[in-house]
Computed example of a mutant assay.
Amino acid sequence: MALDQEDGDYDSYVGNTVLTAASTSDGVLGSEQMVDATLVAAAADLVLLEAETLTAHPTRAQAVRVRATARVLTLSNELAPGFALPRRELDALSELLDRWDETSDAGRAHTAHRCAMAVVGQVPSVVRDAVNITLLPTTRMHDEQMFVRCIQIFESLYRQVADRIAQSIIALDSGDTARPLALLGEAANRVRATQGLYRVLTTMPPDAFAVIRAHTNGRSAVQSRPYRQVEDLSAPRPSDGQGPGEAHGMTLQGTLLLREADLGSQPAADIRKVMRELDSAWRAMKRSHWGVTLKTIGRVSGTGGTAGADYLRATAQRALFPLLTTNTPT
C-alpha cells in the first residue's frame, strides 16, 4: 500500500489484504463477527477523523459531515449485526443527533469523539491495528481519508452479503428454507442501512473528488471482488464489458428455480419474497451510488474505464434475480 502510488489497484488502495487477514477468527470471535468488527472500527474511526477536523476547522460544511458520520455509527448494529454494540455505546450519539441544533460545534465534536473512542475500545486489537494502518491515501486531502474509510465499510458489507447468499444457496439446495429466510433478510437489512453512508459521501465537494480521481486512476470500485460475488452468486448475467461475464456454477436464483417444486408453495413464496426484498435494497443502493457519482463527477468516464455515472445508472436498473418477476412457482 505504501509503494503503490504509480501502479496500485483497488485492493491495495483499500487495504483489502490487510483487512481480510485481520478479520479471521481470533479464537473468541468467528470470522463473520471479525468482519463486522472491522466495519464498526472503520465507522468509528471515520467519526474520530471528522470530529477532530471539526475541532480544528469549525465550519458549517464540516458540521454537516460530522452529523452524517455520527448517524452511520448509530446504524452500526444494522450494518454489522454480527458485532452488535451495547445500546449505551450509541445512546449518547443518538441524543446528540436529536439535539443537534442546540449544540455548539465544540460540543458536537467532543461528544462524537468521546462516543467513537468508546466504540473503538470494544473492537479487538488486531482489528484496530489493521484499520489504523490501512488509511494510506494517495493525496494529502482530508476528503480522501473520508473516502477511503467509506469504501472500506462498503467492502466489509459486500463480503457479508456475498457470504449470506452463498450460505443460502447451500441451505436451499438441501431443502432448508428457514436458514435462507434469516440470512437473506439480514442481508437486505444491511444493504438498506447503507443509505446513511451515502449521506457522508454526498459531503464530498466535486473539486476535491476531481483531485482524488486524478491520483487514483486504475483503482475503481468496479474492481471490487465482494461486490462482484454478490451479483455473480445471485443469478447468471451477461458480461457488461467491465468485469467477469456470466457466472458459472450454482446461483441463488438457479437453485430456487431448480428446487422450489420440492419446497412447497408457501416456503417457496416466502423465499421469493425475501429475495425480492434483497433485490430491491441492492438496486436502491446502486441508485444512490449513481446519484452521488452524478453529483461529484458528472458524466465523465470512471477511473476503471467505465462510462462513469451513465454506467452506474444502467447497472442500477439490473435486477439481482431477473427471473423472479417472469417465472411463476411450479
Rank of each mutant, 00 (worst) to 15 (best):
A2V: 11
D4C: 10
D4K: 05
E6K: 12
S12E: 15
Y13E: 14
T17Y: 10
L19M: 13
Q33I: 01
Q33N: 04
M34P: 03
A37F: 11
V40E: 04
V40C: 07
D45V: 01
L48F: 02
E52F: 00
T55S: 13
H57N: 14
T59D: 08
R65I: 01
R65T: 12
V66T: 13
T74E: 09
A84N: 05
R87C: 00
R87P: 00
A92L: 10
E95N: 13
L96T: 11
L97M: 13
D98F: 05
A106E: 15
R108G: 02
A109P: 10
T111F: 06
C115R: 10
A118N: 10
V119M: 04
V120F: 00
V120I: 15
Q122H: 13
P124V: 01
R128T: 14
N132S: 06
N132C: 00
M141H: 11
Q145K: 14
M146C: 13
F147P: 02
I153S: 09
E155K: 06
Q160F: 00
I165M: 09
L172G: 01
D173C: 01
A178L: 07
R179W: 03
L184C: 04
E186S: 12
A187G: 05
R190N: 04
V191H: 08
T203I: 06
M204A: 08
M204G: 01
M204Q: 11
D207I: 15
R213Q: 14
G218I: 06
R219V: 01
Q229V: 00
D232E: 13
P236A: 03
R237Y: 12
S239R: 00
G241L: 04
Q242H: 13
E246N: 05
G249T: 06
L252Q: 09
Q253C: 05
T255L: 02
L257K: 03
L257G: 00
L258F: 11
D262I: 01
A269F: 03
R272A: 12
M275V: 05
R276T: 11
A281E: 08
W282N: 07
R283S: 08
T296G: 00
S301D: 14
G305T: 04
A307F: 08
A307I: 01
A316E: 08
R318H: 08
L320V: 11
F321E: 03
L324Y: 05
N327H: 13
P329Y: 02
